[in-house]
């Protein structure tokens, strides 16, 4: 058994090597860039960039919008995905094909979705078109992952529960939730990851790099500074976002530890 465990570690080598080269190295470069004064003079300046970025009023606005997006859209997304995949489990025969309707949005390229969205929600001043676009685009993914998670649960557990007379939501709250809570955690994390990726759709939807204030997210801030050649603001904003995300992850893992049986 001991040698087996040792050998398992060797399995990690390829993934780690690739990760180091294509993900860790760039991340270290981003941190280095956030500590120098300017891409060309390369003078070491320490946390001055961070202070400058944090004092910037528009960065705080972007941060607020991004966190708002994570706080409102991601829970709604996860809950609907969980409910839909549960209901879809119950369907028999042809009704099973309904699941394809929810998976489809994930497959549609961005350009056509944005064309449709601009027709349906043109000129509405609220932030909801982008939230709906976010939910629309990512619900398929979560349903796939949750359905796959359900398939790993054994049937016997449910037989026993049914014998004790549990049914409907009580059954789910007591048995399904704890059993797949690791999957629930990572659906939330995936939701957070994808809340950053919604920038491309919202950029096309608004068509300008200066959207209305309510949907000016971090990505816009970074993109605008990329085009203004000061990569330092982008790098420091990025490092700060990853710190915030780290906090969310740690809290999530702690909560999940407390919930699982």
């Amino acid at each position: 058994m001991k040698r087996y465990l040792l050998k398992c570690r060797l399995l990690l080598i390829p993934s780690l090597a690739g990760l180091a080269l294509f993900y860790v190295l760039p991340y270290v470069r981003v941190i280095y860039y956030s500590l120098i004064e300017n891409q060309f003079s390369r003078r070491f300046v320490g946390l001055q960039n961070y202070v400058k970025v944090f004092q910037n009023e528009y960065f705080r606005l972007a941060l607020k919008n991004s966190l708002l997006l994570i706080a409102t859209a991601v829970p709604v997304l996860v809950v609907t995905a969980f409910l839909l995949s549960l209901l879809l489990l119950k369907m028999k025969g042809y009704w099973k094909l309904l699941r394809i309707a929810f998976i489809f949005p994930m497959l549609v390229p961005t350009a056509s979705v944005v064309v449709v969205w601009r027709t349906l929600f043109d000129g509405s001043e609220s932030v909801w078109p982008v939230y709906l676009l976010f939910i629309y685009k990512n619900i398929g993914l979560l349903i796939i992952l949750l359905s796959a998670a359900f398939s790993t649960l054994e049937g016997e557990v449910y037989e026993a529960a049914r014998l004790d007379g549990a049914y409907g939501f009580a059954l789910h709250r007591k048995i399904t939730l704890p059993l797949i809570s690791p999957t629930l955690l990572f659906t939330i994390l995936i939701g957070v990851v994808y809340s950053f990726k919604v920038f491309r759709e919202s950029y096309l939807y608004f068509g300008t790099s200066y959207p209305p204030d309510h949907s000016y997210t971090l990505q816009y801030y970074m993109n605008n500074h990329f085009f203004k050649l000061n990569y330092q603001n982008l790098a420091s904003a990025a490092v700060m976002t990853s710190l915030i995300v780290a906090v969310i992850v740690v809290v999530g893992v702690r909560l999940q530890k407390k919930f699982t049986v």
Partner: peptide, 25 residues
């Protein structure tokens, strides 16, 4: 900081020109 090009032709009315001056590129 690509080194595979040698000089660039721009015009003063483009924003890139002002950025190049400001950042010292």
């Amino acid at each position: 900081g690509d080194s595979d090009y040698d000089f660039m032709m721009l015009s003063t009315d483009s924003a890139l020109a002002a950025d190049i001056l400001r950042t010292g590129a």
